[in-house]
Simulated scan of single mutants.
Amino acid sequence: MNEVLLTIDTSTQVGSVALSRGEVLLGENLLNGPRTQTDSVLVSIGRLLEDAGLGIGDVDGLGVVLGPGSFTGVRVGVASVKGLALATGKPVFGVSSLRALALQAPAARHPVCALLDARKKEVYAGVYGWERGLPAPLGPEAVLPPEKLLSALEGEVLFLGDGATVYRTLIARQMGDRAHFAPWPLHAPRASNAAVLALLEMREGRSVPLEFLTPSYIRLSEAEITWARRRAEGVIDG
Results as ranks from 00 to 15, higher is better:
N2F: 00
L5E: 10
T7I: 06
D9I: 02
T10G: 01
V14S: 12
S20D: 12
G22L: 09
L26Y: 13
L26H: 08
G27V: 13
L30S: 09
L31I: 04
L31W: 06
G33K: 12
G33N: 14
P34Q: 11
T38F: 00
S40F: 00
S44I: 06
S44F: 06
I45K: 11
L49A: 01
L49H: 03
L49K: 06
D51N: 14
D58W: 04
D60H: 14
D60F: 07
G61D: 10
L62I: 06
G63F: 02
V64R: 11
L66K: 11
G67I: 03
T72E: 01
G73K: 06
V74F: 08
V74P: 05
R75E: 08
V81H: 11
K82H: 10
A85L: 06
A87G: 14
S96F: 09
S96Y: 10
S96R: 09
S97A: 15
S97Q: 03
L98I: 05
R99L: 02
A114E: 11
D117V: 00
K121R: 15
A125P: 00
A125S: 13
V127D: 09
W130K: 03
E131Q: 14
P135D: 11
G139S: 12
P140A: 15
P140R: 14
L144D: 10
L149K: 08
Y167N: 01
R168N: 02
R168L: 01
L170N: 04
I171L: 03
A172W: 02
R173K: 14
M175A: 13
M175P: 05
G176W: 12
D177K: 14
P185L: 04
N193L: 01
A195C: 03
L197H: 09
E201F: 04
R203Q: 15
T214R: 15
I218D: 09
R219I: 05
R219G: 05
L220W: 08
R230Q: 14
V235Q: 10
